[in-house]
């Protein structure tokens, strides 16, 4: 009898153990399928995580917004409304403390505010792109080379956005996925 209770308890735990990663997957899959795709101009560098492997950190060119509002605190959660510009890249429309009711937006964190040029600096959360361990460093080199080309907007991240949540799908150099680009 006691064994059955333990087994039921374990079944509940096992379901939870599966549910947590599964829920992480479903949420992301949903955004990838139904969210809007945005391209964010970016520049990568390469560190590594003991559990998740090698990744490149993306520094987005979308990282500031001119605003007269001065009431920002470091590390504060803010909502950045975005839209595509004429070249098809994401640009900031507004930055707010509340989630906007219409249009696409992403959650970000306040870095700092400079009063001199009344600019708000922030960090976008989807800044880690996980790569094969042999490719992460070459990706960084390839990017550095690509960014020396005079072509503008040649490296960007493809991000799907829905209801403030964002999933980083891939990173491109000259319109080729970065993993494929490194292989060539």
């Amino acid at each position: 009898m006691k064994r059955n209770y333990i087994l039921i308890l374990f079944a509940v735990l096992a379901i939870a153990q599966i549910a947590v990663p599964a829920q992480m997957i479903f949420g992301r899959e949903h955004i990838l399928k139904t969210g809007t795709a945005y391209k964010f101009n970016t520049e990568p560098i390469d560190p590594s995580d003991p559990f998740k492997g090698k990744y490149i950190v993306l520094r987005y060119q979308v990282d500031r917004f001119k605003t007269s509002n001065k009431a920002w605190q470091r590390e504060q959660d803010i909502y950045i409304s975005i839209a595509n510009d004429s070249l098809g890249f994401a640009k900031v429309i507004s930055a707010d403390l509340e989630a906007p009711e219409t249009g696409d937006y992403v959650k970000a964190k306040v870095d700092w505010y400079t009063e001199r040029d009344s600019t708000l600096h922030f960090s976008l959360p989807f800044n880690e792109f996980y790569m094969n361990e042999t490719k992460a460093y070459s990706a960084e080199l390839a990017h550095r080379k690509a960014s020396r080309d005079s072509l503008p907007n040649n490296t960007y991240a493809l991000v799907y956005v829905k209801n403030g949540e964002a999933v980083l799908d891939n990173v491109f150099i000259n319109a080729i996925p970065i993993a494929t680009f490194v292989e060539e």
């Binding site: 153990q17 990663p21 992480m24 997957i25 995580d49 559990f51 959360p125 989807f126 996980y130 799908d169």
Partner: peptide
């Protein structure tokens, strides 16, 4: 358990906060 959460984070490029990961 640790590897499965880590791998899902890797597949979907979920930015890591190490403390939240360990807590889960």
């Amino acid at each position: 358990i640790g590897s499965s959460i880590a791998l899902v984070s890797q597949i979907y490029n979920i930015p890591g906060n190490l403390s939240t990961y360990i807590l889960t």
